[in-house]
Structure formats: C-alpha cells, structure tokens
C-alpha cells in the first residue's frame, strides 16, 4: 500500500463506527442523469522499493508480486542474497479489475476494510494515479476533497486559501471572490492570519474542507473528510455535498462510518482486496457489509477465520454479487 493510504487507515483498526447523529437519516434520491463516469476493468499497480518482502506481505493478504522477470541469470541469483536491501522492487496490485458506471446526481459510498483499495480506487478515478491497465472516462473535471497536500503549515491561513484555491484550478480573481466565504465556512475568525501549524486539528480540518469545496466540481470525491469537525460543521459539509449533487454533480464518499454512508449515499461500492465485491443500493450493500465485518471481527478474535468467512458469503448479498464474492474468496484461499 502507499503511504498516504495506510496513513489514513492506520488509526482505525476496524471499519464500522456507528454515529448516533447520522442514524436514521437517508440521502435524498435525485433523478439520475446521463453517465458521467465510466470505469472499465481498472488495474492499479504500485512499484515498491525495498520494504517488506513479497512473502510477508502476501501472508497478510496483500496482493504482491515480484517485478523481476521469472527467469533470473546467475549474476542476479548471486545478488539475490541481499535482495531486500539492494534492488528489491516488488509490485503491489492495489486495484484488480474494477468496473462500474456512475451517473449525474448519484452519491456513491465506497466501503471496505483497511487496505482494500478504497482510497486508491478513489484517486485512480480522479485520474491522479495512472492506471496500469483499463481505463477511466469522465465528463468534466473530478476533484478529490484532499487539498491538504498543497497546503503549507508554515504559512498563514490566508496564504493557504490562496495556494489551495489556485491548486484547485481557480483563477486569482475567483480566489479573491470566494475568500470571505471560505473563511466564514471554516469558522476560523482571526486565526486566518496565523500560520496554519498553530491551528487546532479541528480548525485545520475545517479550513481544508472549506478550501477544497470552494470550487464546486463536477465530480466531488470525499475521503474521510467528515471524520473531524464538530456537529455544526458536519451539517454544513453535508449541505455542501448536497449542493454538488443538486447541480447535477456526482459525489463519491469513502468513510469508515457506515451510518454516514447510509445517511449520505444512494449507492454503495464494496471493495475487498482490490476487487469490487458488491455494487448496489445502499441498504442492500451495507447490510451485507455489516454482516461481513461482524464475521471478520469474530474470526480475528476466535481464530476460525476460514469457516466464518465462508458462512458470511452464503448469507449476505444479492444474487449477482454473491457469486462475485465467492469467486474472490477462492482467489484468497492459497494466501491464507
């Protein structure tokens, strides 16, 4: 896995949080428009230098393969003794053959346990990580709600609004026009003239969200952005997401909180080990996913991994996806 993906996931061991204030809410269904995103048999492969050996990574269920050609010369084999430190290159197959289609006005949640390829998929459909094979077609410019990487903690909030806005492709004039709106939305007051490293984590998160949603994109991708911030801010972000959908935009949301997904999405993609296990209406998929997480958790604590998992596949999911889930389980068998 890449750094940023594992970083985002590292602090959460398991992916099912229920948040009381989201419970019972449902995303408003908006009549769907034409397709705005087509993902066709997408594969993403990362090159990893050094680090874990392929064997140990594979033991953890990550799909790793050696980047070297299978036939190795004598020299290569002699060098092989120090392979983990010299010239060790392996490939991580983070997304393996995902296909789906999204329409204007849809709000799509992506669920899956840590390291299942959710964030990578999100970045790939934004066009940020070039596909290894397969393709992504979009209408308009997708934007990931993750302007953080462009921001500089040493600079003031005001400067960061400028940097972030320009990084998102706004013109200097647009940045000027939206400046007050962003400050107000982030609710940081006079701190706007202080370096961003002096902000509390909540303030920084609010400012990041405010900057990245200043430009209303055609396709908005949200990756765990709602995990921070107080209730009032959460309500405002939801309103912002609804705004994008009203303007015939499409929203993708990766969240560890199933209730957030249930409250804000109309459709859910369930990723597991880089493959799409299930794709369907929100209730159907989250029900199956809850079941899976519960079984997975018990398997971890009880140690009877195989048995539990197989049981889950029999029960959960619609017909089509059940088949897919079973196929994917078989693929894992030799690794376990």
């Amino acid at each position: 896995m890449t750094d940023d993906v594992s970083e985002a996931d590292a602090h959460l061991d398991f992916d099912m949080e229920d948040e009381a204030d989201d419970a019972g809410e449902h995303a408003e269904a908006i009549p769907l428009g034409d397709p705005c995103l087509v993902v066709d048999d997408l594969h993403i492969v990362f090159r990893v230098f050094g680090g874990k050996t392929a064997e140990s990574a594979r033991a953890q269920g990550i799909h790793v393969q050696d980047a070297e050609p299978p036939r190795r010369s004598l020299v290569k084999r002699l060098l092989g003794a120090g392979r983990q430190h010299v010239g060790a290159v392996s490939e991580v197959h983070a997304v393996r053959g995902v296909s789906f289609m999204a329409r204007h006005g849809e709000s799509i949640g992506i669920v899956g346990i840590n390291g299942s390829g959710k964030s990578t998929l999100l970045r790939a459909i934004t066009g940020l990580i070039p596909p290894h094979s397969g393709s992504v077609y979009v209408d308009g410019e997708p934007a990931l709600l993750g302007v953080n990487a462009a921001l500089m903690p040493q600079m003031t909030g005001a400067k960061n609004i400028e940097i972030g806005g320009l990084a998102l492709g706004m013109t200097p004039k647009q940045v000027d026009e939206r400046f007050d709106e962003v400050v107000e939305f982030a609710d940081i007051g006079d701190f706007v003239d202080m370096p961003m490293k002096t902000y509390s984590s909540g303030m920084a998160a609010r400012l990041r969200f405010a900057i990245s949603s200043a430009a209303i994109p055609d396709i908005l991708m949200v990756d765990e952005a709602l995990a921070t911030g107080d209730a009032a801010f959460k309500a405002r972000s939801k309103a912002r997401i609804a705004e994008v959908r009203q303007q015939a935009g499409t929203v993708f949301l990766v969240s560890h909180s199933i209730s957030t997904i249930e409250a804000m999405c109309t459709r859910v993609l369930w990723m597991h080990q880089g493959q799409l296990v299930m794709d369907g209406p929100v209730e159907e998929v989250t029900a199956a996913y809850r079941e899976f997480v519960r079984a997975h958790r018990q398997a971890r604590s009880g140690g009877q991994a195989g048995g539990r998992r197989r049981k889950r596949n029999g029960g959960g999911g619609s017909q089509g996806s059940g088949g897919r889930a079973r196929r994917q389980d078989k693929a894992r068998a030799p690794d376990a």
Partner: peptide, 13 residues
C-alpha cells in the same frame, strides 16, 4: 466503452 463514447466522456490519465 461505447457508453463512454456516446455521452462524450473523456479518458483520464
């Protein structure tokens, strides 16, 4: 792919 072409979507990456 035909669908993508029909609605004038552009290829990413």
């Amino acid at each position: 792919r035909a669908e993508a072409e029909k609605y004038g979507l552009t290829k990413m990456g």
